[in-house]
């Protein structure tokens, strides 16, 4: 028989023994009453808020990856021939410009598809007769700030005076702003929930301390250390918080999946691409753990603070 497992086993046995002995000092289960329920609600809400925050972040990421470096050149000209000439000239000018990764004239078929919902393609419609602008889809290597756009504009001035250059990101800027705001909101909610959890645990610990004051005094007089007494409360709080945490996680996950289904049935391609990755789920599963730690730490500090006032 190896020595190490024997030692580990002995240690674990002692630990368990000490645990059970200490657990007997205070009545278990009666310590905090509605605590697990309150914690379950808090954790559930935190899970939903976190999941929303993460999904929003993913959405923003996917969208910004799509549009970053993207520049649209519109050639707006009433005469189709002149429009096409300028488009070809712009394409030629941009293809060799520094910083341009790719440049492409959006084919007529794609344009037709884009405008189809508004203008229709029924036989007899002369789509070409309408002043639809020609579109060039450009990708830049170093971002689409004004610094990078200005030289392109200068370059097009002569060959394609009807060209208008816009960064694709600038169209989505308000959307990104809104998403950023929602993310802050989610973060704020999580902060408030953590605060509320601490406050609840604080009250519950104080209450439990009051209920067990006599027992604590006795254990104290028999030579129990502050840490020993705090450990009893911590353990009880850990059990409550773990039960509540698991309940809350289940609650939150159910809520998220329902929400996910709602969004999926909207049919928006954006949401499916911007769901939650496995790291996100891992993070969400860690929330109850964080809740337990928070609860245990709060209980410990409360109890130690109260004991310090006893001789």
């Amino acid at each position: 028989m190896s020595v190490v497992p024997a030692i580990v086993g002995a240690l674990r046995g002692d630990w368990r023994e000490r645990n059970s002995a200490e657990a007997r000092l205070l009545p278990q289960g009666k310590l905090s009453g509605p605590m697990p329920w309150v914690i379950a609600i808090m954790i559930g809400l935190t899970v939903v808020a976190t999941a929303s925050g993460l999904a929003l972040r993913n959405t923003a990421r996917v969208a910004s990856a799509d549009v970053s470096g993207g520049v649209t050149v519109q050639i707006v000209h009433g005469a189709p021939r002149e429009r096409d000439r300028q488009a070809q000239a712009a394409l030629a000018a941009l293809r060799n410009a520094p910083g341009v990764v790719s440049a492409r004239l959006v084919p007529q078929a794609e344009l037709d598809a884009l405008v189809e919902p508004w203008l229709g393609t029924t036989v007899g419609d002369d789509v070409n007769a309408l002043p639809v602008p020609a579109l060039l889809d450009i990708r830049l290597a170093n971002g689409t700030d004004e610094v990078h756009l200005a030289p392109l504009r200068a370059r097009l001035k002569v060959p394609a005076p009807a060209a208008r250059i816009d960064a694709q990101a600038s169209w989505l800027a308000p959307v990104f702003k809104a998403i950023g705001g929602l993310q802050w909101l989610a973060g704020g909610l999580i902060g408030l929930l953590a605060f509320a959890t601490v406050a609840t645990v604080l009250l519950a610990s104080r209450n439990a301390l009051g209920n067990h004051r006599v027992t604590i005094e006795i254990v104290h007089m028999l030579g129990g250390t502050d840490t020993q007494i705090a450990r009893i409360f911590q353990r009880s709080m850990a059990v409550d918080a773990a039960a509540g945490g698991i309940g809350g996680l289940l609650l939150g996950v159910v809520a998220i999946s329902l929400l996910g289904h709602q969004f999926a049935s909207l049919g928006s391609g954006m949401m499916t691409s911007a769901g939650l990755g496995w790291t996100d789920w891992l993070f969400i599963c860690c929330i109850p753990l964080g809740g337990v730690l928070l609860a245990v730490l709060t209980a410990r500090l409360t109890v130690l603070g109260a004991l310090r006032r006893m001789l």
Partner: peptide, 11 residues
């Protein structure tokens, strides 16, 4: 048993 448990005497 309380004083013994507090003192960490094995069960």
């Amino acid at each position: 048993a309380l004083p013994l448990r507090v003192a960490g005497v094995p069960e």
